[in-house]
Simulated scan of single mutants.
Amino acid sequence: MTNVGIVTGGGRGMGLECARRLPEIVDVLLLVDLDEAGAARAARALSETSPVTRIEPFALDVTDRDGLARLADRVAGLGTLRAVAHAAGISPTMADWRRIFTVDLIGTALLAEALRPLATAGTATVCFASMAPLLGGPASDPAVRAILDEPLAEDFLDRIRDAVGPSIEDTGLAYSCAKGGVHRFVSHEAVRLGPLGARICSVSPGVIDTPQGRQEAASNPTLGRLTDATPLARTGRAEEVAAAVAFLLSDQASFVNGIDLLVDGGVHAALRTHAASLH
């Protein structure tokens, strides 16, 4: 049977680095990206370095239910779903708070909903979250968490605004909250998929040197301070995050399920240690 892989946001950045790893475990790889031309360029380039694996671009907005249904149909027509790296997402400088929630959390839930019927023994998924919610924010509030656990509710955006208040319109806060929702979604989805023999985890990158990361750093001085606090004394590289994703998708991680893997150079540990020393 043909093994099929999917990388969302596969046209550039960390998604593209993940795509470089997947030909090791799949026969056909679908590069999903909103940027159709970018996905096509990436597919051509990867095809030159991975001639054994068939690589196809697939233009898609991950918030589009009809498009996601087409993606699921394409996978089913090709073979067995083996691996999904869901790297598509937007960061605080890229949109307003509603769009951030819609892409980063609701889109994650919609993708999982569309692909769930294809999950089988050996299927593995990794969703991109962030270290941001681990630094604090509304996602730690039990009332907010209860709402985050229902991202596909029709009134989700109104409910989250009512629970958090006007501050949710701050895009940095919205991003942190949405990514906290991804952490929780992965935990719940692992319970749903486990009986099928399928797995799902998330990765939470720290400050990573990508074009999107540099765009955020230029407008948010906090990211520079986080880099300074990182025990490894540098930003991360996209290929380092992709290596963690590749491990979680591999058979070597066959008993790793429902967890978040923090890839941050130790900055969260440093901040926790500093906080503990103040008490």
Score class of each variant (00 low, 15 high):
Ala174Lys: 04
Arg184Pro: 04
Asp162Leu: 14
Arg159Ile: 01
Ala43Ile: 04
Ala242Cys: 02
Val263Ala: 12
Ile90Ala: 06
Val241Tyr: 09
Gly79Cys: 09
Ala163Asp: 05
Leu31Trp: 08
Gly9Asn: 00
Val103Ala: 13
Gly181Asn: 03
Thr8Arg: 03
Thr125Ile: 11
Ala174Tyr: 09
Thr222Glu: 03
Gly38Ala: 13
Asp35Trp: 00
Cys201Tyr: 07
Val4Trp: 14
Gln252His: 15
Val4Leu: 06
Arg234Ser: 11
Thr63Ser: 14
Asp61Leu: 10
Met131His: 08
Ser47Tyr: 06
Val164Ser: 05
Asp162His: 15
His183Tyr: 14
Asp35Asn: 00
Phe185Ile: 09
Thr273Gly: 15
Thr93Ala: 00
Thr120Leu: 04
Leu248Lys: 06
Asp264Gln: 07
Ile160Tyr: 03
Ala217Val: 08
Asn220Ala: 11
Ile147Leu: 12
Leu16Thr: 08
Phe185Tyr: 15
Pro151Ala: 07
Thr171Cys: 07
Thr273Phe: 07
Thr8Gly: 00
Leu148Glu: 03
Arg98Pro: 10
Ala40Trp: 03
Asp73Thr: 10
Asp73Arg: 14
Gly107Trp: 04
Pro23Glu: 04
Ile208His: 06
Ala121Leu: 07
Thr49Arg: 14
Glu154Gln: 09
Leu105Cys: 09
Arg44Tyr: 03
Val28Thr: 15
Thr235Arg: 15
Ala95Thr: 09
Ser254Glu: 02
Gly136Tyr: 08
Met1Gly: 14
Pro211Trp: 14
Val203Leu: 10
Tyr175Ser: 00
